[in-house]
Design a protein around this nucleic acid. Structure first.
Lengths: 170, 170
DNA sequence: AGTGAAAGATTTCAGGC
DNA sequence: GCCTGAAATCTTTCACT
């Protein structure tokens, strides 16, 4: 036991200090996760160098992270702007009584909506749509309007641009 | 010119039918994008088989998609639940007059917030936070409260679970 | 631009600690 | 659970179409 001995489960001190402790993961696993979140296509050999293990050891750990469901997959990140989608919109939606199903169907049938969460609170859904222009935005919204109230916010910039790795901790 | 000849730029017919045409991208590029969005770690050789090109041709196309800024990177997808973050929360926030900077600082300093967009409309920010429990959620919200109004929605499920590939079209 | 083949890396599989 | 070393596979480069 060389690296895995100290399954560091730190105790939180203040409510906010819940230390982003990743139960069951040792420092090597966390390092691997951080590297793979930042660059999924890194070579195993290079990854091994960075976390100071051998290539087979890293491969085995990655496999276990996948098996345990911690890593769910690997994806290319694309820039919707470069594909001609110059506007990104967050749409909050609350279906009218009895029209929930229809609104869900409309959301699913609208390809510009690339993600939609069901949420608690005053809204029911929060959807993310990428559209080519204001006209297309209007068209997307008009698809939902028959089934309830909507509230749209155009995304102006990313104040915090994706930093999932912070969840992993050191 | 064998595959790249017909840069299919289809004309949209109805506002919603903006056919998700990916200007300048031919069918092979789009197929490559879809495959890489779905699985970034696919071997070039396998990718080549699927889009029916040779490995060097695919490698060259991928390189150009990266250079053109269409592919911005590759990342491992992780499941926050499996890391102990059992609650995901969308927090809308509107800073009080003059406290915008402070609120941004608070957002940036809160690692549970893994993403935050500046938006138009009645809110200013929409942040995504992963927290371990209700107590930690409260702690995160309490960090923002001094600087303005907030409105939290717990994510219950994913009505549409990430389908960026739909932007790419066929 | 794409193909096919060769050289260089990488990943995987043994066996041992 | 990890390491070293060898075999299989993949990636990259280069000459040619």
């Amino acid at each position: 036991m060389r690296n895995g001995g100290n399954s560091t489960i730190m105790k939180a001190k203040s409510p906010i200090d819940h230390r982003i402790e990743t139960s069951e993961l040792d420092a090597a696993d966390r390092a691997i996760l951080r590297e793979l979140i930042a660059d999924a296509r890194i070579a195993r050999a290079e990854l091994a160098r960075r976390v100071r293990l051998s290539a087979p050891a890293v491969a085995e750990r990655v496999r276990r992270l996948e098996d345990r469901g911690i890593i769910t997959g690997y994806g290319a990140r694309i820039d919707p702007r470069r594909l001609g989608y110059s506007l990104s919109v967050l749409i909050r939606a609350r279906p009218s009584p009895g029209l929930m199903k229809d609104m869900v169907a409309a959301i699913e049938a609208t390809p510009q909506i690339v993600k939609c969460d069901r949420v608690s609170g005053e809204d029911c859904f929060i959807a993310l749509a990428h559209v080519r222009d204001v006209g297309e935005m209007e068209a997307v919204i008009d698809r939902l309007v028959p089934f309830g109230a909507t509230n749209s916010s155009i995304i102006q910039s990313a104040t915090v641009p994706e930093r999932t790795w912070d969840l992993v901790g050191r």
